[in-house]
Design a protein around this nucleic acid. Structure first.
Lengths: 259, 259
DNA sequence: TGCTTTTCGTTCAAAAACGATCAAATTCTA
DNA sequence: TAGAATTTGATCGTTTTTGAACGAAAAGCA
């Protein structure tokens, strides 16, 4: 627990601020000032910084957390951990994107983190089958091309045969793909066959295929398979991935980056 | 984080207001004032803002949620006549839809009103190029098929050549189309050529084409034309449409319904 | 219809919050 | 330790928000 009365170091204090906002969703400057025992000027400066990082959105009188519960419930520790890893994975993925590229994002929480990082990148073209990602980017930033098709409620993505109609007409430099599960034997799998179908088409057409998957996804096998590892150029994952993968994947041509 | 007794942030308060209205469908200014513990002036200002955003419709004595699932009470409201007319037009359009049909909705506010009425209709298939409509229907109700293509920011719709890829593969029984302008001489027009292109394809393929347009749209001519009246089967509009239209349109095969 | 009551919109002044600036305090570094 | 760089808190003028006041408009009623 962090003590309330002694002024924390700046980065630490900002992290605390971020957490507080995240829990409450929203907070007033005055309340934050009292809790952290600093001046309002400092709070404002901190919020400014957090806003630049996209962590919060400032409003008159306070701030609103931007990283609340679109996907994961905040309360559970494990999911929280996964969220941090996903954020880091997304940041690493972001660093790979070059100017004026066309990229693909499929559905899933990790790619959604990435989408959020793209808001200011008006030089990019983002092709996606994720309704959430499209919403995230609808008002600013990159050109957005939405793959048509049937909207699958659970994942809020466009899936199925109709998606191929648009996919056949565009080419992306890099495809960033999330997955429900992966393992050496069965490759990449997800729950819905229609979703798998769309992923499969993308994996075959994209210039580079970059898999974004935290280590929790390892060894998981779902119903529908959409690709083998030989289609994948790079896997971005976290440090907890077992050595089995980090050693054998490079041998079959899949680079691995852990963050 | 936020205490009950400390005044909430303005945006937060407005969100709260919106929720309260949404649950109850309708509320009086005085009741809202007491619940939120602010002055009536503030409530009015908030409602004004929410109305601009299309979240609520103000009526004498209070406001009605536009996001409510319940049937809306009939209230008089002269300030937002257009919204009221659009709502009525949408309700009339809704009455034409039969069981298990596939329908198309293009972008625009009138069709969005219609989309909101479809939330419980899980027997329907809704094809649309409107991101807003898709969001509205994403969690419940009909099967949703989103036309792919480039996302046009201003209208939040998918437009352009890529849309034809999906459109070519589906058939809808009825297409409900909004338009920016219509007149006898130039037919139906909208501002963006890409949007016109998508509309044009739909108008040619749909079983029936039903135009939803309040009388303000009459005599307006925009840059890009997408159809003549001979493609239109029915126009649903309001009572203020001039006799010039109501008389001549039936002669060229366009039924007219005023609500 | 005419009258009363409620609600509305507008205006205005007070209060709250903001951004910018600067000096003091703190931390870092040589 | 001295000096530079960073961080902090206080101040001030400006902007935004709020609540109250008042005439106009709408609704209720006889």
């Amino acid at each position: 627990m962090i003590q309330e009365n002694s002024p924390a170091l700046a980065p630490q204090r900002r992290e605390h601020l971020r957490q507080m906002l995240r829990e409450g969703g929203v907070a007033r400057v005055e309340d934050l000032r009292r809790k952290l025992d600093v001046s309002v000027a400092t709070i404002r400066r901190d919020l400014e910084i957090l806003e630049e990082d996209g962590k919060v959105r400032r409003v008159h009188g306070g701030a609103v957390s931007m990283e609340s519960r679109l996907e994961e419930p905040v309360f559970e520790n494990k999911t929280n951990l996964a969220a941090k890893e996903k954020q880091r994975i997304a940041e690493e993925a972001y660093s790979l994107i070059e100017s004026d590229e066309a990229i693909y994002l499929n559905g899933g929480s990790t790619t959604l983190f990435l989408a959020r990082l793209l808001r200011e990148r008006s030089d990019l073209t983002v092709v996606t089958n994720s309704l959430q990602a499209a919403i995230e980017l609808a008002d600013s930033g990159p050109r957005v091309i939405l793959i048509g098709g049937e909207l699958r409620r659970i994942s809020q993505t466009m899936v199925g045969p109709l998606t191929s109609a648009v996919l056949a007409q565009v080419h992306v430099d890099k495809a960033f793909m999330g997955t429900m599960g992966f393992c050496l034997k069965n490759g990449l799998t997800t729950t819905d066959p229609n979703e798998a179908y769309s992923n499969e088409i993308v994996a075959e057409q994209a210039g580079q295929v970059i898999l974004l998957a935290d280590s929790n996804k390892a060894e998981k096998v779902c119903f529908a398979r959409f690709s083998d590892f030989d289609k994948i150029d790079l896997l971005i994952t976290d440090r907890n991935l077992s050595a089995e993968y980090t050693k054998s994947l490079p041998k079959i041509g899949v680079k691995v980056r852990t963050v």
